[in-house]
């Protein structure tokens, strides 16, 4: 807190000094200052994230990334329920569904939030991962979140057509019924309302971290696991929690 106050005061001094310079300079400075301030709160190095976004997906997508940043910054002090809804809404608005085959020319590809936001496209697990990481960044504890493999019944209640699907579950308390954040529908519903989904297996990032640190215990061999690869790569893209 003290550090952030000091930082913003430092920013003001800089602002006064450079006020008659061009608008671009001012904007860059603003980005720099906000980045600096936010970095103090959120465990994301936005400068790295934005730079990588710019490199990989071009300046157009940087705007989306900045929107994500704004969303995270603004919802920091909200309640957990509100965070769930805001995050779900953000991805529902900014992503469109696209299968891995079409998007990545692979049967099953797990994308990091950077890739998902960069493409603006994703399939069910890309949604779930992006949402999971966003919520973790916003400070929701790991044992309240589960990535859940579900069997989805598609095409109406009597349809026999099923599909492998992944959703994110939010447990208000460990024993409670979870709220389901799904890519198929934009609403966040309690699991009891989701009769079309049958849970199979759930997981989160518990056990991936050494005790009380954000240092991964995994070694290069463990990165062969898809889930761990995502987490490692996300860290390299400036997001850690």
């Amino acid at each position: 807190m003290v550090a952030s106050v000091r930082a913003s005061r430092f920013g003001c001094v800089l602002l006064r000094k450079f006020s008659n310079r061009s608008l671009l300079h001012f904007l860059l400075l603003l980005i720099f200052v906000t980045t600096f301030v936010c970095a103090d709160r959120l465990p994301i190095q936005f400068n790295i994230f934005l730079e990588k976004m710019n490199q990989q997906f071009g300046p157009v997508r940087v705007a989306v990334a900045r929107n994500w940043q704004t969303m995270l910054v603004q919802s920091q002090n909200k309640t957990e329920q509100q965070k769930i809804l805001i995050v779900n809404d953000f991805f529902a608005r900014n992503l469109r569904y696209r299968t891995d085959i079409q998007l990545w020319q692979q049967n099953d590809y797990w994308a990091t939030p950077l890739e998902t936001l960069g493409k603006g496209l994703g399939d069910c697990e890309d949604y779930a991962i992006a949402k999971y990481i966003s919520l973790r960044v916003l400070g929701i504890e790991d044992d309240k979140l589960r990535l859940i493999y579900v069997k989805a019944q598609i095409g109406g209640p009597n349809s026999k057509q099923a599909q492998a699907h992944m959703v994110l579950g939010y447990f208000v308390t460990p024993n409670a019924q979870p709220l389901i954040l799904d890519s198929l529908i934009t609403k966040v519903l309690p699991s009891a309302k989701r009769t079309d989904l049958t849970p199979v297996f759930s997981f989160n990032s518990q056990g991936l971290w050494a005790n009380n640190s954000n240092q991964s215990v995994a070694n290069p061999t463990a990165r062969l696991s898809r889930w761990r690869r995502i987490i490692e790569q996300t860290q390299q893209e400036g997001i850690s929690w």
């Binding site: 024993n175 009891a192 297996f201 997981f203 518990q206 056990g207």
Partner: peptide
């Protein structure tokens, strides 16, 4: 060696770790 950790669920509910 760190233990392997995995979640066990009972339907939608968490059952244990």
């Amino acid at each position: 060696v760190m233990p392997g950790v995995a979640q066990v669920s009972d339907g939608w509910q968490q059952f244990g770790t």
